[in-house]
Design a protein around this nucleic acid. Structure first.
Length: 464
RNA sequence: GUGGCCGUAGCUCAAUGGUGGAGCGCCAGAUUGUGGCUCUGGAGGUUGCGGGUUCAAGCCCCGUCGGUCACCCCA
């Protein structure tokens, strides 16, 4: 019989206990931080109607949607339509739409916007929520990039105040600091500012996306590289020079804002953006964000098309890696569902990238398990004592497993070592006769006999 | 979606077109109640998969799947 190769679907992974124990630690820390700041959890379905998702992420995003094939009658009907129109539009985009009207969620923001639009009357505004769920993108996998990955989103709906935008910066700072990162910075920019830069530099409408994409590559290809790309776009020397001058600005956010102010003086949108950014930096500092943890970065663009105000991206400063998270203000997304805009700002944490970089930082990973104690088994006659002791340990809050059968002790201890269980409990005929058990600390290779009645308390002390 | 590189034991990797190996890990024993050290032995493979060239393919060719890197884009 032909064997089936036990391989994962492209870009997906299995998580074994040692992986999941670590992941859950990160999850817990995020959850705790969000709730400390007054954010409440929600969840949404994995599947959305395609029209909810399409057009929210830009052209690239539509291509990366995982679409769900129609089934049964609908599928046959779609096939008949295709055959009836032999000379119709057979592009991948058109075919996708014909054969599918549902897709896996691409991010957590758009489904969230749908939820807000649908449940406006049940929600107290301003509404702070967080959400940790997998999302799917039909991208080509690379290091730190998967087709199925978890995102943790934090959003606040119903306020135009820059205090909320600053809070996003503060939450980034708190989470990454608590995770042990010492090398990160949250880059901040503003969509309105970018728009006004395009306007005051006389970049034609049809070249603005390409221009911003080129600007976004600054940290990768340098100022000269960006200039080359802009020249290739045939923007004209004056436009190129002005853009390069603005992108090249450096210094404190306050100094950069001051330098920009005269350049965008003719643009209402630009002036407002500068005012908002000034507030964000001021409030973030007041919220305790150190100056080295936040930067004003005019080359930050971000691909998602729904952003309208400040945008954020948190990156590691000492290694070339994708961003650990990003977000921004999107005041007009909910209006696409209800016809009436509701201001929103939110950020996303790339859990996989956090997990990958944390793993790379502490290379000497010890086996991780949730089990704290292993009770060994000797012979049929010791079973009852072992089970009773295991109950004592569990009653004391110690995660305890009893070995499955009476194999020789070295096998059982090796099992404990390989799983990373810190405490082995040995009780054979000798101990039972003495009314005692042996607590062996696997980490220090020390052990001592204690009366069975004290075992749970002593074990607690050892594990503390 | 475009291009480059790579797929050999559980893991890391060897093998001029000519009988597929090593280290680590695993199992057993030395050690009948003690993991890490030492020694001895053992198991484990349709060389990712499918075709082709050849007397002969792990090696060459084509396809395919997967991984990886650079683009694109992104968390």
């Amino acid at each position: 019989m032909a064997r089936i190769a036990p391989v994962n679907a492209k870009g997906t992974r299995d998580f074994l206990p040692r992986d999941l124990v670590r992941r859950n630690r990160v999850f817990s820390l995020l959850r705790e931080t969000f709730e400390h700041h007054g954010y409440e959890p929600i969840e949404t379905p994995s599947v959305e109607n395609t029209n909810v998702l399409e057009g929210k992420y830009g052209e690239e995003g539509d291509r990366l949607l995982f679409r769900i094939l129609k089934r049964g009658e609908s599928l046959e009907k779609a096939a008949r339509m295709l055959l009836a129109e032999a000379d119709g539009d057979h592009s991948a985009a058109a075919l996708s739409r014909l054969f599918s009207d549902e897709a896996l969620r691409y991010d957590l923001t758009v489904p969230f916007a749908r939820v807000i639009a649908a449940h406006q009357n049940d929600i107290v505004f301003p509404f702070r929520r967080y959400q940790m769920q997998p999302v799917w993108r039909a991208d080509r996998p690379q290091r730190g990039r998967y087709r199925e990955f978890y995102q943790c989103d934090v959003d606040c709906v119903g306020s135009r105040s820059m205090t909320v935008d600053a809070e996003m910066v503060a939450i980034y700072c708190e989470v990454f600091t608590r995770l042990g990162y010492t090398n990160f910075v949250t880059r901040v920019n503003h969509r309105g500012l970018l728009n006004s830069l395009m306007a005051v530099s006389a970049v034609p409408e049809d070249k603005r996306v390409a221009t911003m994409t080129a600007m976004d590559k600054l940290d990768k290809i340098g100022l000269d590289g960006v200039r080359e790309e802009l020249v290739k776009l045939a923007l004209g020397d004056a436009s190129v020079d002005q853009l390069i001058e603005m992108i090249g600005l450096s210094g404190t956010p306050q100094a950069m804002l001051a330098a920009l102010r005269p350049m965008v003086a003719d643009s209402t949108e630009g002036v407002e953006a500068l005012d908002e950014l000034a507030e964000v930096f001021e409030y973030a500092a007041a919220m305790g964000v150190p100056t080295e943890r936040v930067s004003f970065d005019m080359s930050l663009v971000r691909g998602l098309s729904y952003y309208t105000g400040p945008i954020f991206e948190t990156v590691l400063t000492d290694m070339q890696f994708g961003s650990l998270g990003g977000g921004g203000r999107y005041d007009r997304l909910i209006g696409q569902f209800t016809g009436r805009d509701l201001p929103c700002v939110g950020i996303s944490f790339g859990l996989e990238r956090i997990f990958d970089t944390l793993s790379e930082q502490d290379a000497n990973e010890e086996p991780a398990t949730t089990t704290q104690a292993l009770v060994t088994l000797f012979s049929r006659e010791t079973f009852a004592h072992a089970f009773a002791l295991a109950r004592d340990l569990r009653a004391a809050g110690i995660c305890t497993e009893v070995y499955t059968e009476p194999k020789k002790l070295s096998t059982q201890l090796t099992f404990a070592k390989n799983k990373g269980i810190p405490l082995a409990v040995i009780l054979g005929p000798e101990e039972i006769a003495a009314g005692a058990v042996v607590l062996r600390d696997m980490r220090t290779s020390t052990q001592r006999a204690v009366p069975s009645a004290d075992a749970a308390a002593q074990a607690q002390a050892l594990l503390r």
